[in-house]
Amino acid sequence: MTRPDLEPIVRWVAPGARVLDLGCGDGSLLKALWQAKRAPGYGVEIDDAGVLACLRNDVNVLQMDLEDGLSAFRDDSFDCVILSETLQTIRRTEQLMREMLRVGREVIVSFPNFGHWNARLQVFLGRMPVSRELPYEWYDTPNLHLCTVRDFEDFCRRLGIRVLERLVLHRTLAVTVLPNLLGSVAVFRLGRAER
């Protein structure tokens, strides 16, 4: 299954940009960014299998825990910091968001939209949602902080984060009508607040 957010992220990253991909998994996004945009980068991943897959994919990978923050990285050291389908697994969400905007000029975040009708329906029927985008049972999920598109926009507003671009998808199709109801994945391009 190709990740629905891969194509828009690759589109949004400028050619030659220095990229940091947090929770990079097997490094396929970084590999795609290198192939399409000649954008060099590093991935951060904690899982052994992911790290090994990155090395096999010839992707620079750093085995570190995002919960420890991004102290390994200097201010403004990246053009773009990416948090793809990882936001919902982070314990200290607010700290990480601030850190990402410290080390990167721009941030791209993607996450499963908990406001999608299917999730709403399952909760309405008295069940925790299980779907293609949220494939876990409540007792084995790595997800800690699920949110909807609207929740995330409120969160950005509260932290003074500028939303530069927003794309809501279902599978690989853009959803423009009732995105918080019909979209299953959201991708945001974010910047620091203007002074």
Binding site: V51, N60, V61, Q63, M64, A72, F73, R74, S77
Partner: peptide
């Protein structure tokens, strides 16, 4: 990283 070198890092348990 600060010196902008190419690096990978593994911490083996």
């Amino acid at each position: 990283l600060d010196a902008r070198k190419i690096v990978s890092y593994l911490e083996i348990d």
